[in-house]
Design a protein around this nucleic acid. Structure first.
Lengths: 225, 225
DNA sequence: GGCCGACTAGACTGGACAGTGCAGCCCAAA
DNA sequence: TTTGGGCTGCACTGTCCAGTCTAGTCGGCC
């Protein structure tokens, strides 16, 4: 780490947004797999280069340092999120949601559940937790690019449903986090902690979602029902 | 790691349960602080020895390897939990709880909240997440010695309150996890992820607990109230 | 005094790994 | 055909660190 304290690094600045050559993409794909599987310290640039089918020197030519590769890998991953699409999907559901909040909550659960599994979120969360002390920007970016938009969209939906009378949430943001907590306690954190589902016999996901919806609505469904 | 695959290491076996000399305790205290602050890879035995005011060779004499020091540190930490005391406290509350489930839930929340802050659980969870891939025993032990007893005691309380009619939980274990999820989403995970409370403006803990209690009871309070 | 066990101090080995330098190769464009 | 850029392969440096070895100190105990 030559320039550790040389550059202030504004923590959210996008210093490198070149188009990314094909070779660079090969490297990022390889490093994503390896970093997710083994963590930052568990991977060296020899392995990344070999896995990408590229000379190690090329990695240095394109990225300059191991940390830069790691950073680029994270950005590249997050850039592929297409959270707008998720948000659009949620908003599209909103019309029907006013008639049936339970169905909306179920659909939202499905959305985040597939998002989590399809984008390796478990491994990414593990990486964020493991490296956030050394590389503080990683936690900030993860939150800003990953979780915050999801929570905000969901909050907006809850607020809208409250305004139309389908729900009664005095504090939609708190309610959003509560609902997420009801799901994640069963689905995310045991996996992040690598506690086998065998150790803590968990109910199937369908039950978790149904129970979360039931609890949420028993608190926030409008009184007149 | 000389004997990596030599010994099957039954993953929960307690290989070393000597009384622990004063020097060993000094080393464990030092290594606990350092491992919590910097992670496994972020600490070398020179630092541990220096911090303990002891020669590096002494560390090897007493523990044999870095991983053994780490393991002993974890065990020593977990052995100090005195979870029985917590459980006893909960059970003592149970008599009053039948009259006032809300008060019981508040007291339970306080218990786990002080437990979490007083025993550095945040840093420990981070360590577990970071190292659980390399050292799988760490997750198992953390769960068996830390979380499982708490969940079981809480579950037993909920079941008992259901039997006496103070509550109506068809599945007390699921309900216990739900309540924990409602609290931890706000109090534990943001800190584990090192997302500053500034980034995701969180409600104060008191509000979190009150809202969790309210939601829990609106779902599980007996119908006749 | 002599023995012993706990601890110390420091040198040393061996391996892993980030990062650099450089000569050369391939290929496309001029 | 020449030139230049992207890539390769390899050798090399410097550093960090786990783990070992050894000679020596200190205090208690017989």
């Amino acid at each position: 780490m030559p320039a550790e304290h040389a550059c202030p690094s504004p923590s959210t600045a996008p210093p490198e947004d070149r188009p990314l050559s094909g070779t660079a993409l090969k490297i990022l794909d390889a490093s994503k797999v390896l970093f997710l599987d083994h963590g930052y310290d568990g991977v060296n640039l020899d392995r990344i280069a070999a896995h990408a089918g590229v000379a190690r020197q090329t990695v240095y030519n394109l990225f300059g340092s191991k940390e830069a590769v790691f950073r680029a890998t994270m950005r590249h991953h997050w850039a592929a999120f297409e959270l707008q699409e998720v948000a659009a999907g949620l908003n599209r559901d909103l019309a029907r949601a006013e008639a049936d909040p339970a169905a909306f909550l179920r659909r939202f659960s499905d959305t985040i559940l597939t998002f989590v599994t399809e984008t390796d979120q478990i491994a990414f969360i593990r990486l964020v937790v493991a490296e956030s002390r050394r590389l503080p920007w990683i936690a900030t970016e993860f939150y800003d690019l990953g979780k915050a938009p999801l929570v905000e969209t969901f909050t907006a939906c809850l607020r809208h449903m409250t305004e139309t009378g389908a729900l009664r949430c005095p504090d939609p943001e708190l309610a959003a986090h509560q609902f997420l907590g009801l799901i994640q306690e069963f689905v995310i954190w045991p996996r992040v902690m690598a506690i086998g589902p065998d150790a803590m016999r968990l109910p199937p996901t369908g039950v978790v979602v149904e129970e979360a919806v039931a609890m949420f609505l028993s608190r926030y469904a409008p009184a007149t029902s």
